[in-house]
Design a protein around this nucleic acid. Sequence first.
DNA 1: CATTGCAATGTTATAACATAACATATATTA
DNA 2: TAATATATGTTATGTTATAACATTGCAATG
Lengths: 154, 154
Amino acid sequence: MSMKSKSTSELKASIHRVEEICKSNKLGLTEIRKQVFEIIVKNNKPIKAYEILDTISNINNKPSHPPTVYRAIDFLIENGFVHKLNSINSFVGCFHPKAHKECYFLICKKCNIYQECCDDSLKDRISKTAIHNNFVISNTTLEIEGHCLDCSQK
Amino acid sequence: MSMKSKSTSELKASIHRVEEICKSNKLGLTEIRKQVFEIIVKNNKPIKAYEILDTISNINNKPSHPPTVYRAIDFLIENGFVHKLNSINSFVGCFHPKAHKECYFLICKKCNIYQECCDDSLKDRISKTAIHNNFVISNTTLEIEGHCLDCSQK
DNA sequence: CATTGCAATGTTATAACATAACATATATTA
DNA sequence: TAATATATGTTATGTTATAACATTGCAATG
């Protein structure tokens, strides 16, 4: 599995998927929320809240404010369209929305490109670990930082 | 495995272990670094940088500044004595220093007590996932949030 | 035993990340 | 259409973290 960036068609599909899910679940995909989602998925690398803020201010040709962006992000995370990478305070689009709330990531420190790795056996292992500790999981953060194939060959 | 807090003797042992490791590795365990480590391990729950700052200011009866605390934390993390929980911007002492750089955590959202879970099969699974993706790991963050046995029974 | 170099700390300021609180607007529905 | 809920605008501020440069203390070297 390479860490190359998403194709235009993948991006379109991803945006369309979110629209469909919102429609069928009566979730208010407002203009701002849609803009923020598009900015995130099109970025191809993890993006920071204030970068989104700048981008959206430019697009709309008027300044936006942090709460606007953070609220949109909250909505998108809430519904599984976006994930937060806590180790780098950044956000990424999810290419498997509704398939899972939890998602695991490989993040290349050099090129910054990331890869979702929704590995079932990993998922199993984590849930077994939790069970073994009598622990009820509500949220899992798994972020693996390092170097992708391309960058480690350079 | 319960999530009860550490005993006094465990704390002492943990501090002593760090002292020994620093001595034998010629690491400068200065007064400030030692104070910060003790504050973190004695806290028993994840502690925030600015809480450490307040505590240390009180202990020494004079104000300390953020860089002082963050530098000490950096040193402690660098050497595996302390871990950062990125999902809650907090720090915890490591009870297995030098045994590993990576450490996985169960964090109870209710009582805030945490548990290191250095499960080998989990470790294996993660490294297999990385290999499968041709990825060279430099750092792993695995934080499992939820409820511990005690708290989920209440 | 100066002096030079280095590691650690002190200090000031500010950058980066995030939310509280309240006002306003827009959509929904009784 | 009034009442309610949902979303957004706006101002201010809270929280987390680091840059940059000055100072100190101590160990190695000439």
